[in-house]
Design a protein around this nucleic acid. Structure first.
Length: 285
DNA sequence: CAATATACCTGGATGC
DNA sequence: TGCATCCAGGTATATT
């Protein structure tokens, strides 16, 4: 479940219940995620601590403990965090269970194991977070996300604008679904090289990105295959998607059939009429 | 260095 | 029904 809106929906779910709760125990699966589950660090730095708050940077959740330690969670493609009663049996692909007070548990389930769990001790948290955050792109819902900044960052970049939007080291949190939707809303062809966008088009990208991400968060995220919030409920923004997954269906604006192609290995959907390719013609020569 | 390809996994959909 | 194949929201690493 992975893009920024789904991670943010997860964060809001945790924020409503986790702060001030003490972690009283931990269980880990025997499997490795993106890297090995840090079971020793979990026992040493997380168990026994109370949760202070839950933040998000890019697609990472930062569960902050009162000691200053941080549990970093990445959901990968299929990761889900849920808050459940301890009586409920563990499910297949559960990889982390944190026991909380009042018989509640926080569980991390991830069938494909592309997710990540990392612990920063209180002693190392500050340095590790600075280093980590520096490697992430700008936050699309933050104050740095402006037309001027995007123009500057995209200078000399001949990569397709759709791939550029998905580069986490440049802009944080935009994945395949929302990159498609943003470019449709901004009337920009996904293959247009990033350096060829006009300032007015970048302004459209900024406005579309903010609007779509806010709407998606408000709708509880997009549940394409299996995203669920911490309360086990799906999101509904998939009902508002205009191009993603709609190959061959009529564009909701002009009626032209939505086309599908592959860009840098990722499925790419666009309206050939609303997202005119005429700008890209300049690139072809 | 910029851009693309590949690898990491499981499960669901599709086709024979 | 069974089996093979392809595809999926991400990202780190290798390769041109």
């Amino acid at each position: 479940m992975p893009e920024l809106p789904e991670v943010e929906v997860t964060r809001l779910g945790l924020l409503a219940q986790l702060p001030a709760q003490q972690v009283t125990g931990v269980w880990c699966s025997k499997y490795q995620l993106r890297s090995a589950i840090p079971r020793c660090e979990l026992r040493a730095h997380i168990v026994g601590q109370r949760v202070l708050t839950v933040d998000r940077r890019a697609k990472y959740l930062l569960i902050r403990l009162e000691s200053g330690a941080v549990l970093v969670v990445h959901l990968g493609m299929t990761g889900k965090l849920s808050l459940v009663d301890e009586q409920i049996p563990r499910h297949k692909h559960d990889h982390l269970v944190l026991n909380l007070e009042h018989g509640q548990q926080l569980r991390f389930n991830d069938s494909r194991r592309f997710g990540a769990l990392v612990v920063w001790s209180a002693a190392e948290a500050r340095d590790r977070e600075v280093e980590f955050s520096r490697a992430q792109g700008i936050e699309p819902l933050g104050p740095e996300f402006t037309t001027e900044t995007l123009i500057r960052l995209a200078r000399q970049r001949k990569i397709p604008v759709k791939s550029w939007l998905m580069q986490g080291s440049v802009i944080a949190g935009i994945g395949n679904i929302y990159a498609n939707e943003i470019l449709f809303a901004a009337h920009i062809h996904p293959l247009l090289p990033a350096n060829l966008l006009l300032p007015a088009q970048w302004q459209g990208v900024v406005q579309a990105t903010r609007a779509i991400l806010h709407q998606a968060i408000a709708a509880g995220g997009s549940t394409i295959a299996d995203f669920l919030g911490t309360n086990g409920h799906p999101g509904y923004f998939q009902l508002q998607l205009k191009v993603y997954g709609r190959e061959g269906q009529g564009c909701q604006v002009c009626g032209a059939p939505i086309e599908k192609t592959v860009v840098a290995g990722r499925s790419t959907f666009y309206c050939p009429a609303c997202q005119s390719a005429k700008e890209t013609v300049q690139l072809a020569k």
